[in-house]
């Protein structure tokens, strides 16, 4: 598909999806399309939703989409599911909960597999956010895999991070553990009609109060803990999610008012630059080492302890980096 960047700027959904695909498949020169659209990014409010598998993220996302659509806001969704480490395939099953929006032109849902990315957020997801942004989506929801305490990568990409908890999954110690519990701008206790919801609420509130102002991504923001009742009572569920929607928007206003947006996006921008540098500098070198057979030789030599990795790296650096080799 030609001229992807231009077509995305013109609002072509298939081209947008294809651009994300090219990122996923690591098609060479895909960055050119990203270069074409980059100046137009930075307008959307990016919302991350994470939490353990089965917590109900997709169902919440589905209702949140409806809540935004009732305000005539447009929504983009990047729904991430895990790639099998054994087969490389994936069952992308988040979308099945959002299909009532399938024909709504104001909603664009794209399912992605992690494809081995650490922390669940691949480059395709990170750049996919830019694509959704350029399509003019008011809100972009990134729903991540939620493997538990490791799921912190989302903070680099989202303005507002929502962590979804469910009762009955561990005791007070769970609430104190690092990672997942530290990154939330908003906590949701989903399925709050279940046993243990009250206890979980208290533990989470305790933790929030203890950590206030000491760490956390948004300084000065009082992290709320919202209860969401059973999805089996649609009116109650819709009401709770409407409250969630308003809280999310409140958080974004907080960021804007206290001039924290740029700060928040600093991590992502740093990561993007690092990635681009890697692609421009390291990737070609690695490619050449592989194809020339040099990499295999280096591995063999290291296995027999004939040489260590750092010496080898120095040699490669001296060979490829002009500045280094002239100064040493």
């Amino acid at each position: 598909m030609k001229e992807l960047g231009k077509r995305v700027l013109a609002g072509d959904i298939r081209a947008a999806s294809r651009l994300i695909r090219n990122l996923e498949d690591q098609i060479p020169n895909t960055h050119i399309a990203i270069q074409e659209i980059f100046a137009n990014t930075g307008n959307s409010h990016v919302i991350g939703i994470t939490g353990a598998p089965g917590a109900g993220k997709s169902t919440l996302t589905d209702e949140l989409i409806a809540a935004y659509r009732s305000q005539e806001k447009t929504v983009g969704v990047l729904a991430v599911d895990p790639t099998s480490p054994f087969t490389g395939g994936a069952l992308l099953g988040d979308r099945i909960r959002m299909l009532r929006h399938a024909e709504d032109k104001g909603v664009f849902v794209r399912s992605l597999a992690t494809r081995g990315a650490m922390g669940g957020i691949s480059k395709a997801v990170g750049e996919g956010i830019h694509v959704m942004d350029v399509l003019g989506k008011d809100k972009i929801i990134v729903e991540t895999v939620g493997v538990g305490q490791q799921e912190v990568e989302i903070i680099n990409h989202a303005h507002t991070v929502i962590v979804v908890l469910v009762p009955g999954m561990g005791d007070e110690i769970q609430a104190l553990k690092a990672g997942l519990m530290e990154i939330a701008d908003i906590f949701i206790i989903n399925k709050a009609d279940r046993d243990g919801a009250g206890k979980l609420y208290k533990e989470t509130m305790n933790m929030v109060q203890m950590s206030r102002d000491k760490y956390g991504i948004t300084k000065g923001w009082q992290t709320p803990v919202l209860l969401v009742e059973s999805v089996l009572e649609p009116h109650k569920f819709a009401e709770s999610v409407t409250k969630l929607r308003d809280k999310i928007d409140e958080h974004y206003q907080f960021l804007v008012y206290h001039d924290l947006i740029a700060d928040r996006m600093r991590r992502k921008t740093t990561a993007e630059i690092n990635e681009a540098l890697w692609g421009a500098i390291l990737a070609p070198i690695l490619e050449e080492l592989e194809s020339s057979g040099e990499m295999k030789k280096m591995i063999d030599k290291t296995l027999t302890k004939e040489v260590d990795p750092y010496t080898l790296a120095d040699e490669v650096a001296n060979k490829y980096l002009k500045e280094r080799s002239t100064s040493s």
Binding site: T87, A90, L91, L92, G93, S111, A113
Partner: peptide, 15 residues
């Protein structure tokens, strides 16, 4: 869906 996933495809099922 499962078999295709096990064969390395990315499968989306509409329900």
């Amino acid at each position: 869906a499962r078999s295709l996933k096990d064969s390395g495809l990315e499968v989306i099922y509409t329900g």
